[in-house]
Design a protein around this nucleic acid. Structure first.
Lengths: 408, 408
DNA sequence: CTGTTTTGTCTTGGGTCAAGACAAAACAGT
DNA sequence: ACTGTTTTGTCTTGACCCAAGACAAAACAG
């Protein structure tokens, strides 16, 4: 009989740390840490051989094999024969098993809600959308039908879904999963979204701010070489600025898990126009799309179609349109300068429709940053904001599998 | 022959993580984590028995004993017989051994430099001061003599000192230990302070920004019950505002380890007076002591003695003096509001001479914060800023012994 | 067909912790 | 004084985890 050691088959339920006491380490936490490191490396380098993982981490060959065996047994990782390259034994290539788990990411927007089913790699397998209703109760009913559609009918109701994460365009309590308020949908304020969704589906759920999810999503998709430990994400919208920030490699959600990075409401001019937050001269009043429109034509009202036309004109080289965006960009530069002085991020990521005229807005912003000591890299988001929110939710729903335990 | 397990006697040299690769966990890192947790708990709860430590952490009795044995062997912890309380075996009380190690904390100020010798508990055993010279070369010479005095003469030169940490009132590169610039002492710009000190003394050294050290010091001294994971420290000085911030339990030093939390240079009024940072309307122009003096009497120059007189008058109830501080407090409130919206800290700590009139400045600040969603606690620093800088340096010099390893 | 190289598996040994038996030292009650 | 109870700490055992290296498998080179 072989004495070959066998990996435990745990369902990978990450235990919450005992409240109050510092989370101590046990021999098992060593495995949790290394396992998470390897799973992340497989995600980033796939397809990858065991020996490459060993070289990347410093973990010994034999132990890489042992941990990978556990991942294979759980179905998170897939193995296939690699191609012979030069002499030597042919390596086995490891990659994430897209069918290793099923999660649902949901993005609530003022007009529409989208729910997407995704596998372990985060690729969307199927999605369902509905007009966002005015009341959370009606939303729940629509959401039930969307989930049924994604799962292939009421029969297989929520079968196999491991986690649901919901992106909310407003302030939420990340800890309790409660919506505190949404500008566009006041009827949802105070709604215990997470609890209701969990009750209905029987699946663990998470609720988070849209821009916070976008921030972690940008990092998730980031370069392999340069791990971003300090970055700021800014989404310029019609009437405001949403934002998220990663400090020392961790998303900042504030001490009571409700908000942080509300850069839009920094006062940059105490004698400026009143903001509906109750103060005067908030930054977002100067840089949102409405403000850009006002710079262009103060006499007519802002509408989406007019703004799109403005973008087209600016791209076409229309002087007045270009100047409107330049004015906004200078004010963006002022605020980003403030942010840089406070956080000294490595990268500032900009999202929103005005990134469609990146060639126009980037120079004035860079100019404002030029004189600063720790000048950050500036770049547009990798995809439109709406997609970032949805993919951020999917990523967050998957994060339990990839997260390292906190020790100490 | 006994098979009793014996603790390794390692000199506790924390290995730097291999650059580039994520730091993996080994069975040894488990011990490092738990050892750090126990040492911190002994510091905070001393005198404390092994059984109490076991209850606080969840680490089993036997293992607490095993780890404590290691700490005793290294001389970091001291054991004494506790008092019998009720029946049962008399517990042994553990506490930090003040003579367990020797470190030196140094605070460079514009006028004076102070060097202090301290033991494991952080209590100052002896100190030496000298006028800060204009050039770093002369400073090094003075510093050598100060160290000699602290060590009891040239004979026992730097003997037994485990670490030196130097607080600098300016911008430094925490990673390289280089001074980038100091407002008050321009001659030091570009000086590789850490390397020079290490060369001269043969002792590992750290160089850090004064307010960053004060920030971690306030946390170190913080309540046992409420571990502060998000706090902001602000020091209002003659001409500027220094600051530090802790996010998710970690000090934020920015992506290139040079600065962060430069709240003083947030622009709060783009049409305000010019700042010597090259921009206009920086916050510190409105809230520094000079600004307060100007609110009181714009016709005469600011001097230290006049400002002290102003404080006395305000404390005495002089209407005009009180109003000058109230004006400053309102502008402080504006900036702290901005900071709150960005960081959502649990606590904001204020230091500087204007905290001597806390009863006058606190209400206007609280008023500005009242309407915010995540209203932070506001409190004055536990000790004068100069002492915080020095004790912060001492604490930082000790931190290697108390820090947990980073895993992942 | 043999030697070399590369990749992965299996065995061994050491570190770490949890669990519980055991010892020591106090008090309570008789 | 003596015994039982309670509390604290020590020692032993077993399980988990990793590093190191022997060994096996599978390719190419000559």
């Amino acid at each position: 009989m072989s004495t070959k050691r066998q990996p435990k088959r745990v369902p990978a339920a990450p235990e919450p740390p005992r409240a109050g006491s510092p989370s101590t380490a046990t021999p098992a936490s060593v495995r949790q840490v290394n396992r998470a490191i390897l799973l992340n490396l497989i995600r980033m380098h796939q397809p990858v051989s065991r020996i490459q993982l060993s070289a990347l981490t410093g973990i010994y060959r034999s132990n890489v094999s042992f941990i990978v065996e556990e991942l294979l047994a759980e179905g998170l990782v897939r193995e296939e024969r690699g191609r012979p390259a030069g002499r030597g034994r042919v390596p086995m290539f490891l990659s994430l098993n897209p069918d290793g788990c099923r999660v649902v990411g949901v993005s609530i927007r003022a007009a529409e809600t989208v729910a997407a089913l995704a596998g372990l790699t985060g690729r969307v397998l199927d999605s369902a959308a509905f007009r966002t209703p005015k009341t959370p109760k009606a939303w729940l009913e629509h959401f039930r039908r969307a989930i049924e559609k994604l799962c292939g009918g009421a029969r297989r109701w929520a079968a196999g879904i491991q986690h649901i994460c919901i992106s909310v365009p407003g302030m939420v309590n990340h800890a309790s999963g409660e919506i505190l308020w949404m500008n566009a949908l006041p009827g949802y304020a105070g709604f215990g979204l997470r609890e209701k969704v969990q009750e209905m589906t029987g699946v663990p759920a998470t609720v988070a701010n849209d821009c916070h999810l976008a921030t972690t999503c940008e990092r998730w998709m980031g370069d392999i070489s340069a791990e971003l430990r300090n970055l700021v994400f800014l989404e310029v919208g019609d009437v405001g600025v949403g934002a998220g920030m990663i400090v020392n490699g961790e998303l900042c959600t504030g001490h009571n898990s409700t908000f942080a990075a509300e850069f839009g409401h920094m006062v940059v001019d105490p004698s400026g126009p009143p903001c509906n937050c109750g103060r005067r001269g908030c930054w977002e009043l100067f840089v949102c799309d409405r403000a850009t429109w006002k710079h262009f034509d103060a006499s007519t009202e802002f509408t989406e179609s007019r703004f799109e036309e403005l973008i087209r004109q600016a791209r076409g080289g229309d002087r007045r349109a270009v100047r409107a965006f330049q004015t906004t960009a200078r004010r963006l530069g002022l605020g980003i300068s403030n942010i840089t002085l406070v956080l000294n991020p490595e990268t500032v990521i900009l999202a929103g429709r005005l990134t469609e005229v990146w060639g126009i807005i980037a120079p004035p912003i860079e100019e404002a940053l030029a004189a600063l000591p720790g000048r950050p890299r500036l770049r547009p988001a990798r995809m439109p904001a709406e997609e970032l929110f949805l993919h951020g939710a999917i990523r967050q729903a998957l994060s339990g599998l990839f997260a390292r335990p906190r020790l100490g």
